[in-house]
């Protein structure tokens, strides 16, 4: 009779566990059967009524029942916990299509981005960058660059003068003299910066614009070195394997002087001026022109960006409309 009672109790407990719906129910079941006032404890208390020889056996049975019930409880608990977590996570679902928190983010100006690309390309080719002043001396902007006195070449350089000897540089080439008076060849130099010319502002002209200027002096430098360097530079800037074309042009500081174009996306695009550094300039800095020669080339930063991005109005760069700036 007692044996049957314990068996029944176990069967009842296991059934209760099996049908428990949630952790709260399961906890109540645990208390009901295994708690200090629970059914199994009650069974244990009846041990005193048994004959002495039966007591150990009965005790062992109650204990093993306890164990199997608590094992069952534990596995059921794991099962229910998993289920409840799943339900909770399901309830915590959010609309992942709403935008994220709005962090402010600034961008760099397209001219800065272009200068960065120019620098990357030229530094990779071994060019050292130097800066020159925007408020430049007449001597560096013109005289040192082999501009003949009162020459019509000045007509192409409408200049902002501050006084008789100071002006706003019309070209970054003005740096050449500053470098050559301090350094001996060989060298490969480059500079970027702002230039000024008195021009009426329209879609292709501005009184303020930016240039990159590159020059090097070494033994045996020729027009072929210039062409190859321009090809490599233009390929780095515009991508692909661009073709370079020279056309004779005149700049007092180079001889031969050319303007160069690249063949890009099916057409020839004029990029800037170039040539071999005029021997008059090299000689004025004590460089032996029988041993050394050099080349120089320059181009507009705006021009590079306009070609790369199909921008058709130079004025946009200094206007700083946010729609334009955010585009790049």
């Amino acid at each position: 009779m007692r044996m049957d009672g314990l068996d029944l109790l176990i069967a009842e407990a296991l059934k209760d566990i099996e049908t428990a719906q949630n952790l709260t129910e399961l906890n109540q079941i645990e208390i009901k059967y295994l708690g200090s006032k629970g059914s199994l404890q009650a069974q244990m208390r009846t041990i005193g009524t048994l004959p002495k020889e039966d007591r150990p056996k009965f005790g062992a049975r109650v204990n093993s029942s306890k164990e199997s019930i608590s094992q069952r409880l534990s596995s059921k608990r794991t099962e229910l916990e998993g289920k409840e977590l799943e339900e909770r996570l399901n309830k915590e679902r959010i609309d992942i299509t709403l935008p994220g928190r709005a962090f402010p983010i600034g961008r760099l100006h397209p001219l800065t981005l272009t200068v960065q690309r120019v620098k990357e390309a030229l530094i990779g080719q071994g060019y050292e960058f130097v800066d020159g002043p925007e408020l430049e001396e007449y001597a560096y902007n013109f005289e040192a660059l082999n501009y003949p006195e009162d020459h019509p070449a000045f007509d192409e350089m409408m200049t902002f003068y501050v006084d008789d000897t100071r002006l706003l540089r019309t070209q970054t080439t003005a740096l050449q003299g500053r470098v050559m008076e301090k350094r001996k060849p060989p060298f490969r130099m480059a500079t970027t910066g702002r230039c000024f010319r008195y021009e009426a502002v329209d879609a292709t002209h501005h009184h303020t614009f930016h240039q990159v200027d590159v020059f090097m002096v070494d033994e045996g430098i020729s027009m072929a070195d210039l062409k190859g360097t321009l090809k490599q530079f233009a390929s780095a800037m515009f991508g692909g394997n661009v073709q370079v074309r020279f056309r004779p042009d005149f700049f007092p500081f180079v001889e031969p002087g050319v303007d160069y174009s690249i063949f890009w996306e099916g057409r020839w695009l004029e990029l800037g001026g170039a040539g071999l550094i005029h021997p008059n300039i090299l000689e004025s800095y004590g460089i032996d022109t029988e041993r050394y020669s050099g080349f120089a080339f320059g181009l507009g930063i705006e021009r590079i960006h306009m070609i790369q991005n199909g921008v058709n109005d130079l004025r946009l760069y200094l206007e700083n409309d946010l729609r334009f700036l955010k585009h790049f």
Binding site: F187, D218, E219, S222, A224, D225, V244
Partner: peptide, 13 residues
């Protein structure tokens, strides 16, 4: 005029 690249020792970029 062919395309060639300058060779020789020069400044650190």
């Amino acid at each position: 005029i062919p395309e060639r690249l300058p060779v020789g020792v020069t400044t650190q970029g």
